[in-house]
Amino acid sequence: MAVGSRVLEAAGLARPGRLARLREWWEQEHVFGYGLILPALLLIVCLVAYPFGMSVYFSLSDYWVGSPGRFVGLGNFRNIIGNEIFQRTVYNSFVFTSIAVAFKTVLGIWLAMLLFRNFRFKRLIRGAVLLPWVIPTALSTLAWWWMFDSLYSVVNWTAIHLGIMSPPGPNWLGMTNYAMTAVIAVNVWRGLPFFAIIVLAGLVSIPREYYEAAQVDGAGSWGRFRHVTLPLLRPVLAVVILFSTIFTFADFNIVRVLTRGGPVNTTHLFATLAYQVGLDGGNLGQGAAISLFLFPMLAAIVFVQLRYIRRE
């Protein structure tokens, strides 16, 4: 823009009105507004819209890796809905997401309230709590996997030596409920800092006068939490739950590394099943259909939550 105007200035000496007119045009609110979103728009159209369109096309065709497909309408969707493994995956996804998000919400608020207090080493503690969010997931899940190993599990070792479990302890990744517990635990571990830090930011923004007023009214700490903190946190919570739901629903790495969907598909999520069918198995059409199944559901959740946020 700056260069452009200078060029115009140089060229337009004879007709000074031209530059002025251009500037006037550019200074209009709607022109400026469109101008600023143009780069983002271009990016989304070129690099997101096209791949997304292709994915939708994949899902509507019998596309196999390495051979072009034919349009089959909703055939893939019909097929996967009828498949027991997919039905199990839908169930798993809801169990996984709802439990993980619930834990992250409760623990996240709790942790944020703790971090809000004045500690010695406050910075250090805040930094330490953020660590799980920061370590590359692809590597941290490997560490968890090693911790849950059937033979060398440090979790079991500790529990046995503390006398909580009797040896050899549960086989974390091989038994249905334990495996689900394990993947949820890792997801909570990873997502909790994100939750806590955003809620912490919300807490910081609550004006102190509100608490003082509540105290004058004789509210205890629980009362202050219920009647001041929680209502004022609601918009922040709505946002963070929204994002967390999206992150959790679309989780891939944890299950892929820890259980590969096992035992007997009881931990498969949309993303892992889609990857398994579409890439490992080569059935791109079905893989795309499985992963796109997520989209309308997420869109519905987001629609409701966005409405709620806007109203706030």
């Binding site: 609110e29 507004g33 600023l36 728009l41 997304f52 949309f270 889609a274 791109l284 992963s291 997520l294």
Partner: peptide
């Protein structure tokens, strides 16, 4: 900050792109 036609729908569009399931996106990309 700015008011122009379509600002809201564009805001929503930006958000929607966040929902696109990334599993297979890398292939066309």
């Amino acid at each position: 900050r700015l008011r122009f036609r379509g600002v809201n729908s564009f805001g929503t569009a930006v958000f929607i792109t966040y929902l696109v399931p990334p599993t297979l996106l890398f292939l066309p990309l």
